[in-house]
Simulated assay, not measured.
Amino acid sequence: MADTSVLSRRLVLALPVLALPFLGLTKPAAAARGKVVTILGDSITAGLGLPAADALPAQLHRALKAMGVDSVVRGAGVSGDTTAGGAARMDFSIRPETAVVIVALGGNDLLQGVDPRVIRANLDKILNRLAARHMGVVLAAVKAPPEIGRGYARDFDAAFAQAAKAHRVAFIPNLLEGVDRNPALKQADGLHPNAQGVKVIVRRLAPAVAKTMAAQP
């Protein structure tokens, strides 16, 4: 069995520690450059340890452009944020002209051992509010490692999958799939994605975002 103290320390390091501020645009300016995509996330999605050009918002923008999709991609990450924090700040962090929101939260809930039922309630609040604001959604989860306890990991993962199904939004079960256990795709800390790791993430994320954008008026 894994040393739980070591695992806990690694989880702490793997979770969000940096906020990336977003830049506001007026509706006319945003429309001229493409639909606005906002990432309601944390330091992993904001690009901890990477130049802005290699971080997720910039790489996602380039990937969408390569697909022929014009976009303005904004990072709205807050250090240490949880699903509860995202629900509390979403009206401020997600500007009115946003067409699609990528909800990429949950890592800190995992670290804190938040009850999956509470996580599900927070996700419901976020997704209901986004629906009321007529914004498309891509829900991107982080997969709980079985080392923390298979029962909790199962319930944690289910909270995201069930929320996506109930609200009929695009769903990515594990944003870090192919990256989280591959040292070649990590920075020197062995935890956060490097530029190539972000590219792997974007390869899976961009098509879901493009499809969701196409469905938005």
Results as ranks from 00 to 15, higher is better:
Leu20Gln: 10
Ala164Asn: 05
Pro57Asp: 03
Gly80Glu: 04
Ile119Lys: 10
Gln216Val: 11
Ile148Gln: 07
Gly113Met: 13
Ala215Asn: 08
Ala163Gln: 03
Ala163Arg: 09
Ala208Pro: 00
Ile119Ala: 08
Ser8Ile: 12
Met90Asp: 02
Thr82Ile: 03
Lys125Cys: 12
Val69Asp: 09
Gly106Met: 06
Ala164Ile: 11
Leu56Arg: 02
Lys199Glu: 13
Val72Glu: 03
Asp91Ser: 14
Ala31His: 12
Ala153Arg: 07
Leu56Ser: 08
Ser79Phe: 05
Gln162Glu: 15
Gly75Thr: 11
Gly49Gln: 01
Leu185Ser: 06
Pro21Val: 01
Ala76Asp: 04
Leu127Gln: 07
Asp81Gln: 12
Pro57Glu: 00
Ala195Asn: 01
Pro145Ser: 10
His134Gly: 04
Phe160Lys: 08
Ala14Cys: 12
Val73Ser: 01
Leu205Tyr: 00
Ile102Gly: 02
Arg117Lys: 15
Phe22His: 14
Ala170Val: 04
Asp124Met: 08
Glu97Asp: 05
Ile148Lys: 07
Pro207Phe: 01
Asp81Asn: 13
Ile119His: 01
Ile94Asp: 01
His134Tyr: 09
Ala163Phe: 09
Leu20Phe: 05
Arg95Cys: 08
Gly86Met: 05
Ala195Ser: 03
Gly68Asp: 00
Pro16Arg: 10
Leu15Pro: 04
Arg33Glu: 12
Arg117Val: 14
Ala2Gln: 03
Pro51Phe: 00
Ala99Trp: 00
Pro57Arg: 06
Pro146Leu: 13
Gln112Tyr: 10
Met1Cys: 12
Ala29Asn: 09
His61Tyr: 06
Asp54Gln: 11
Met213Thr: 09
Ile172Ala: 06
Phe156Tyr: 14
Asp124Trp: 05
Gly24Tyr: 13
Ala99Met: 02
Gln187Phe: 09
Val37Gly: 01
Ala88Met: 09
Pro21Ile: 10
Leu139Asn: 00
Val101His: 06
Gly178Glu: 07
Val209Lys: 01
Ala58Phe: 06
Leu48Lys: 13
His134Phe: 07
Val118Lys: 12
Val209Glu: 01
Leu13Gly: 15
Ile44Pro: 08
Ala46Tyr: 01
Lys186Phe: 10
Val78His: 08
Leu15Gln: 15
Gly75Tyr: 04
Ile201Phe: 03
Val137Phe: 07
Gln187Cys: 06
Thr83Trp: 05
Gly41Trp: 10
Val6Thr: 13
Ala131His: 08
Tyr152Leu: 14
Ile172Asp: 02
Met213Arg: 04
Val138Glu: 07
Leu191Val: 12
Thr212Gly: 00
Leu64Arg: 10
Lys186Glu: 03
Leu48Tyr: 14
Arg150Lys: 15
Pro16Ala: 13
Ala214Arg: 05
Gly86Asn: 04
